[in-house]
Computed example of a mutant assay.
Amino acid sequence: MTEETTAVSEQAAALQGEPVSVALTGASGAQYGLRLIECLVAVGRPVYVMISRAAQVVIATETDVKIPSDVERAQQKLTGLYGAVPGQIRVFSRDNWFAPVASGSGSPSATVVCPCSTGSLSAFAVGASDNLIERAVDVALKERRKLILVPREAPYSEIHLEHMLKLTRMGAVVIPASPGFYHKPDSVEAMIDFVVARILDQLGIDQQLMPRWGSER
């Protein structure tokens, strides 16, 4: 075994906990999903990433990050961008039905759709499963696993609200991308971290992005 192979093996062994699936769909707020991936990598969690076609457009529009459409290149891009160890981030295409997230026997214990478009909400609510993101959510629901949806829309129609209510009753946790201001954010990044902190709390992952309520008093 070469020194390089040994180093890679040691880095992989340092990863902690089960993988977390993160899906980015076509709603505004790509920064929330990218920041979540960054934070998960920082605490040593393996991350399964799915990016819809619409999300690729949103990422290119809202951020300076350019995610290649090719899966391998996208994986290399995110790995380098967030300093992940080799294999820590795995990117899956929309039609990869052999991905772990496509089956209850391989899917991780937590799935986050961030941001979650209202179109995706609709597909999730009816169990469409027409692509890997929809199938991953369907698996999370049927297996009664942690599912976090982060919608970003304004205003919400009755259809959107009905879908959120339906999915909540199925066991999903809905965290609208609605940052608070009681922590007196002084930057866009601080507002993003407010929402990401709430997601990490729901995942049971220790975070230092936001102080606990009352901890500063």
Rank of each mutant, 00 (worst) to 15 (best):
K66I: 12
I67Q: 12
P68C: 08
D70T: 00
V71Q: 02
E72G: 08
E72V: 07
E72R: 12
Q75N: 04
Q76C: 15
K77I: 04
K77W: 09
K77R: 11
L78M: 15
T79R: 12
T79V: 01
L81Y: 04
L81R: 08
Y82R: 04
G83R: 10
A84S: 02
G87N: 12
Q88E: 07
Q88P: 09
Q88H: 05
I89P: 04
I89M: 02
R90G: 09
R90Q: 13
S93A: 11
D95P: 08
N96G: 04
N96E: 15
N96D: 07
N96L: 11
W97L: 06
F98I: 15
P100N: 02
P100W: 04
G104C: 08
S105A: 15
S107R: 04
S107Q: 03
P108Y: 06
A110E: 04
T111E: 06
C114D: 10
C114A: 10
P115S: 03
C116P: 02
T118A: 12
G119S: 14
G119P: 15
G119Q: 09
L121S: 14
S122P: 07
S122F: 07
A123R: 15
A123M: 03
F124L: 08
F124E: 02
A125W: 05
A125D: 05
V126W: 01
A128M: 10
D130L: 08
D130R: 15
N131M: 11
L132A: 12
L132R: 08
I133M: 00
R135E: 02
A136V: 13
V137C: 01
A140Q: 06
K142W: 11
K142Y: 10
K142F: 12
E143D: 02
R144W: 08
R145A: 04
L147D: 01
I148K: 14
I148G: 05
I148L: 09
V150C: 09
P151R: 07
R152A: 11
